[in-house]
Design a binder for these strands. Sequence first.
DNA 1: TGTACATCAGTGAACGCGCGTTCACTGATGTAC
DNA 2: TGTACATCAGTGAACGCGCGTTCACTGATGTAC
Lengths: 207, 207
Amino acid sequence: VRITKEAAAGNRARIVETAGRLFNEKGFDGVGVADLMSAAGLTHGGFYNHFGSKEVLEAAACDLVFEKAVAALVRNVADKPDGEREAAFANYVARYLSEKNRDAAVVCPMVALSNDAVRQGPAIRQRFAEGVRGYLDALGRAIRPSGRLAQREQKRVRAQAITALAALVGGLLLARGVKEADLALSNEILETLRSQLKAGRLASARG
Amino acid sequence: VRITKEAAAGNRARIVETAGRLFNEKGFDGVGVADLMSAAGLTHGGFYNHFGSKEVLEAAACDLVFEKAVAALVRNVADKPDGEREAAFANYVARYLSEKNRDAAVVCPMVALSNDAVRQGPAIRQRFAEGVRGYLDALGRAIRPSGRLAQREQKRVRAQAITALAALVGGLLLARGVKEADLALSNEILETLRSQLKAGRLASARG
DNA sequence: TGTACATCAGTGAACGCGCGTTCACTGATGTAC
DNA sequence: TGTACATCAGTGAACGCGCGTTCACTGATGTAC
């Protein structure tokens, strides 16, 4: 039942995308190869035509999911012209910390996979660290004016990016953690962080 | 081989403590009942004399680990007299965000278990939410002056507690996630957050 | 362009393994008299 | 207090199940001529 190279490449890509989604929802260990393949519309036996092991797929999925996240941040905020960037960043934060994003099946990989990543092998941890670096860089570009900055300003921007990221990730993580058992607390966490970040207490385009 | 009630109760307590440690390190699904029992110095068969299922133990371990964390925060910070509390809080933050704490086998349950908790059943999620509530309350008492506060002040303290917690949890989570693959970045994250929190950018006893 | 054959993506049964859980058994503890 | 017996924490083999992975097989694709 050989298929065309293009179809095979499409299948592979679909497996990685499906994996990105399922791993994000249920963790690496929460999704079996068989589940995954059937979710991608295939039977489990063919998995090893595409990937040497489940771990290889985990790494590929990790890459994909971070690329998507960083690309969205760059497209929606970092690449905006100076006049629009501050508003775009505020918008981004509001969406990140929204009830809708908390309830979404797929969320920020740093929220969904941090704990899984620490417990996995070097390959996954490598990709994860790369992803965080990329995300932090994009975040830095999202909260600073364009053009060259004095070194002192660069440091300040970097510190703000790190602080904002920590608060975003921690906030969403906690909001998701308590959501089912205490929706009011979950909403309170999101709302509080939205207003704190809006007030520029954590980071802003102005600094 | 019946043993005294006291010995049995001691065994049970040791199982829960061992579980708290191992679940924290490897996640709920990363530790088997047999691993756990042998780490506690027992054979796996006896597990069900103490717990109806692994999930029951997970809930008990969740309780224990949160109780310990909240108790430490209360003892070391919240219960200090007014004059010492600000310094105690600064100290607490510095320890929380220290390289030593990042590298410790057992860390803050919100960092270690958030993702696991979301994916578990209602019993665990319930305990987790309770734990977060307790921790936030203790944190509120840790960053405010004692005595009655105006409602406006109460709200501000609450918002600061939430913001500080999100930054602490997110920061430690990220620092742990990238540690093995990028130690420099991991250290940078911790250092940045320490100085941001020290500067009162996130929360302080003064506000 | 047409033909012959090797390649390889996909299929589904099967493998070994580790897991949570159950079981029959042991023998000291706890209790009833 | 002493005796007889039921209780139950601990033991280790065994269970069923799901997992990651392997396998023999299929048949359309890709390629060599």
